[in-house]
Design a protein around this nucleic acid. Structure first.
Lengths: 190, 190, 190, 190
DNA sequence: CATGAATGAGAATTCATTCAT
DNA sequence: CATGAATGAATTCTCATTCAT
């Protein structure tokens, strides 16, 4: 793909992200996505087979950016406890810094748009994080709970924290924010 | 309203619930809701001013049933710790027993459909639960966190547990289920 | 028909008249007509076979009241010129005094609702006025024009005058009103 | 707009004109308008924001064609009397030659669809004709009546004449047609 | 390649009419 | 008789997708 083509594809994804985050799926017809992206409607169909395809690609992209960002500065060499601390913190920070992505993801995950392909792709992305969990379980730092359960509890809690911050109820520097993060750790630690 | 009228109104709500839970908002046009409810499309409009109105009414109804159900057997006389235990347990049980309601609520809460009226109504419904939190905070059983934060952490975690059970990963009797509930308590207890 | 039945029938006609005059045909669904008439929707169908039937009956009723009113005080004994004067004047006065009827009639006459039966009924109502025209033509007071043409010219002009008054541009006592009436006579007099 | 686009827009207007003239507003749903225009329903909405918008645009277009047509051959140099003669004659001829436009205009003007914008646009179109009236009033050729009154009387009378011709009661060459036109002049001349 | 006009299936909503009470 | 709840055909309008330019 040429650089220009990449630009247009990215513009379409970004426009869809913003519109869906701001107005929900109903407020994001293809025509408006194209308009905000500054490209033609037809052009979108050169890069995505359908609207569903666009949205699934957007989700993968979002999750990919998220994992890339929170894994930055993380190393498998880090002690498990510190690794967790890093990831939790990075996760909340990322969500707060990218509210549109959070809003989009929440809507998407609760809609029946998700495909099997998307689910598989997600697992791949989360591999390093799974590894951390496995290490933690092996070191008996965590409660004896299945991996998916810990993941679900942590993810939903962090997301809840991020939403609170976005609603304006709390600032990042707020000491209660630290307490909140600690609470999440309390939940899963043995 | 006559009994038959109440039946039709309830049938419309139930049909909408099922369809939205199963297929999302896009899979629930008024025509299909009417069809599944076994009534005419026009009839729905005798009871709800618009589709938005129907959906908001449904959400209130769902939350109302939920609170009524989990408050059954709960008493303000109960010690705080037991009160929590009861509510958490009842909440997961209710969500697992009413998967369509959970699926609908998750979709609705992440959509831009909520109105101010609905939000106000919700607060009213949750009053008794708020009181429990206040008691717990007063007795210094909980971490020093704002009420909304504790509520959000608990609700999102319980929901996450319920979804896990629904996905088939776990049964109600599973010992890990008890551990999961305990983990949620660990998160918020001082 | 009992007296009460006549009341309901009249109430339906009156409600339809007002609604159509105020908001046009689109603003006058049967449900609203019934509501304003203070009766049930079904009741209207006891007196009128359909909405079209109701509207046609209303038109006949309107025209009947109009002719009855303007013929009051008119006598075949009157000299033709004075007879005309009387009728023209009475016609404008009636229209101005009954703006809803004028508004309704204008809308009705330009719609394709009118039936052959209604047309025939109209002719019957206008008989005495036709006679006046015939007398005038016989006395060679009028231009040699076909009866329908004079009638159409006069009716449209009087209606135009009445609309002007209703629009607030002119008062009944205004001297230009007299001049206007005289102008209409100038149009048809030989 | 490309030529083809203009074609479609014009086709929609023409189809709406014919259907409303023939069957009234009730006989002209968007689907039928599109069908007769030989275009898709959605296409109409590319050119008109709503059905109301389409109808108002049609009215402006009709009146614009009408004024353009009757002003052809008219010159401000013409003596007032001849100017009137020309306009009256051209007006009847136009109405008779374009019965659908007459029928549509009559229905529209008596409906509550007119917007303020449309009214303003009309005034602009009728400027040259207003000028003629002003000249005539200045030369004391007309009765001392307000401009609007003369305009209303003349327009309604001419329209009445045109409708008569359309009903088949009279032909254009008919001497009584000339007498009719003369009668209208008699009405307003001093 | 990019575009956006054109399309028509499908969505929400209205309303004349019926009929059980 | 009177009522008005119930109905579904019909209406307006939207939007994902196509395809000629």
């Amino acid at each position: 793909m040429t650089e220009e083509a990449l630009d247009k594809k990215a513009a379409a994804l970004q426009a869809a992200l913003e519109l869906i985050a701001e107005q929900g799926f109903h407020g994001a017809p293809m025509s408006r996505i194209a308009e905000r992206a500054g490209i033609g409607v037809g052009t979108i169909y050169r890069y995505f087979a359908s609207k569903d395809d666009l949205i699934n690609a957007l989700y993968i992209e979002i999750k990919s950016r998220l994992t890339r960002s929170i894994l930055k500065g993380y190393s498998e060499q880090l002690p498990v406890r510190e690794g967790f601390q890093h990831l939790l913190d990075a996760l909340v920070r990322y969500c707060v810094a990218h509210p549109a992505e959070l809003a989009f993801a929440e809507q998407y995950e609760n809609s029946p748009l998700i495909t099997a392909v998307t689910r598989a792709e997600l697992l791949r992305l989360f591999q390093p994080i799974q590894d951390l969990f496995r290490r933690a379980l092996a070191e008996q730092l965590l409660k004896e709970l299945p991996f998916e359960m810990i993941g679900a509890l942590v993810y939903s809690s962090v997301t809840a924290l991020a939403k609170l911050q976005l609603s304006g109820a709390m600032q990042l520097g707020d000491p209660r924010y630290e307490t909140g993060l600690a609470a999440i750790w309390d939940m899963i630690k043995r």
